[in-house]
Amino acid sequence: MATPATAADIAFWDTPRHGGNSFNQTAPDAAYFRALRATGATWVRLTFSKWKGEGRDFLIGNADHYAGIPARDLAMLRQAMDAANAAGIKVVLVPLSLPGARWVQHNNDQQDDRLWQDRKYWDQSAAFWRDLAVAVKGHPALACYNLLNEPTPEKGMGLDEHAEPAVREAWYAVHKGTTHDLPAFYEHVIAAIRTVDADTPVMVDGGWYANAWSFSYWTPLRDSRVLYAFHMYEPWDITSGPQIKRKPQLRYPAATVTWGGKSRAFDKAAMQDFLGAPFAWAKAHGVAANRMVAGEFGCVRVWVDCGAYLGDVLDTLNTHGAHWAFYSFREDVWEAMDYEIPPAFPAGQVYYLREQGKGDKVPIDSPLMGVIKSRMRQSP
C-alpha cells in the first residue's frame, strides 16, 4: 500500500480518489464530514462562497474589488478544514466567485463576466489565490486548489457549448491571448500561487461550465501539478430541473433529446462516447489518466432513472481510472440531488422539516446512495 500523501503531495492523486461535493450555505461541521467519510469518500470539493462572511462575498470580501481576505472568514474556513481533517477527509477548495466574476445566484441572477472583459480582475484573482495559498498551505487536510467553479469565458462569444472539436479549435485561434483565453488565465493565477506555494496541486475546470468536451482546444498547462476537471450532467434536459415536474418523465437509456444541436438517443454508449473525450484528449497530450477529475456529476433524485444513470456514469469513470466527486452531499439549501433522501419523499416536506428544526426526521435511506457507495468500494 502506498504511503499516505501529505496535504501538498501530488501523489495523493496517483490513486483513484472518490468523494463528494459540499456546496452548503453554512460551513459544514465535524458530524457532516464524518458522515461523508462513512460513505467511503476520501475527499470533498468544498466551496465556501455561499457562507456568510464579513463582506458581500465570503473570503473575497467584495468581488467588485479584492482588497484582502477578511480574518473572520479565513478563521471559519480553517475551522471547516480542521473538521474535515479530523474525519479523514482531504479538501479541495473551490470558489463559486472570483473578483470580477460574482456567482450568478449572488448577482441578481445576472451573469457577471467582468473577469473575461478586463485583465485587472485577472490580477485581483491571482492576488486572492496567492493570499489564500499563504493562509492555508501546509494544512493537513488540503489536497488541491480548484481555481474557479464552472468558468464560462466562451459564453456569448460565438461558441456553442457542444461544438465539435474543430469548431472549438477555430474559435480559440481567434481568441487566444485575449481576456477570453481560459488556459492563459489559469497560467496567470498559477504563477502567482507558485510564488508562495510550490507544492500544492491545482485543479482547473474546463470552459463552458466544465463541459467534458471543453479541453479539445487546450494544450496542457506548464505546471506539472495540475489536475484537469470536467462535470457531467449531460444531457441537462433529462438529468435536471425539467424532470422534477415533467409527466411523463424522459427515460434513460434511449430518450431522444436535442443535444449538441442534434437529436439523438442518449444511452450508455452515448454516455461513454461523451465521457471518453477528456481521456482521449489527455492521452493525445501525454496527460496521465490520474490527472483527470470528474469534479461533479448527478441527476435529480425524483427522476425514475437517476439510479441507472448514476451507475453508468460511475462505471464509465471507474473504467478510465478517474477521480470523481458526486454532487452533492447533504446540501442544506437544495435537496434535489441529495441521494440519501428517497426519491418519493416530497421536496416540500424536506424543507418544512428543516424549517421546523426537525431535519433529523428527513429519511436518509435512499437506494441512490447505495449506487454511489458500491462504486466507491470498487476503487483501490
Rank of each mutant, 00 (worst) to 15 (best):
C299Y: 02
N318H: 01
A141K: 13
E187Q: 14
V226N: 09
W324F: 12
R354C: 00
M232G: 00
R375T: 06
D360Y: 00
T39E: 13
C144I: 05
G359R: 05
K50D: 13
L317A: 10
R114Q: 10
G311E: 13
T258W: 04
G359L: 10
D73A: 04
Q356N: 04
Y172D: 04
V350F: 03
V226K: 08
A141W: 08
G295M: 11
A83C: 02
I372H: 06
D199E: 12
L250D: 15
L96A: 11
G260T: 12
P201R: 13
Y217M: 05
H180Q: 09
V350C: 14
G295N: 07
D9K: 01
G40A: 09
A336G: 03
D338S: 06
Y233P: 03
T256E: 14
S97Q: 07
N62P: 06
S263L: 09
P28Q: 09
A255L: 07
R194F: 04
T15C: 03
F185S: 01
M1Y: 05
R34N: 07
Y209D: 08
D64F: 01
W43G: 00
P28F: 08
D123F: 00
D9N: 04
Q249A: 09
G88A: 08
F274G: 02
A135V: 06
W43T: 12
S216L: 07
K52Q: 14
P248F: 08
A133S: 15
G156D: 15
F326Q: 11
A11F: 01
R246C: 03
V189M: 06
D181T: 03
L317E: 12
T3I: 05
W43L: 13
D365G: 04
G311H: 08
N85R: 05
W51D: 08
G261P: 05
A35T: 11
L227A: 04
L368V: 02
D332W: 02
M337E: 14
R291T: 04
C144Q: 10
A347N: 13
K137M: 10
A133P: 02
W334F: 09
N108L: 13
D273P: 00
K90R: 15
R102T: 14
W303K: 00
S216H: 11
R251D: 08
C144Y: 05
M157R: 15
F274S: 10
L36N: 01
G68Q: 06
T6E: 14
D57Y: 06
G276V: 14
Y352N: 07
A101L: 14
H323F: 05
M203N: 09
Y217H: 14
W334V: 10
T3R: 13
E54K: 15
V136M: 05
N290M: 07
K373T: 15
Q25G: 08
R56F: 07
Y228T: 01
E150W: 03
V167Y: 00
L132M: 11
H65N: 13
D312C: 03
G260A: 10
D9Y: 05
D57V: 03
P343H: 09
R301T: 08
S125A: 15
G241I: 10
A210E: 11
F215P: 02
V196F: 06
R225W: 00
A30K: 05
K262Y: 04
T15L: 12
P165Q: 07
A83H: 13
I372R: 04
P278M: 09
W236Q: 13
T219H: 10
W171Q: 02
K262D: 11
G100Y: 04
P242D: 12
H285P: 05
Y339S: 01
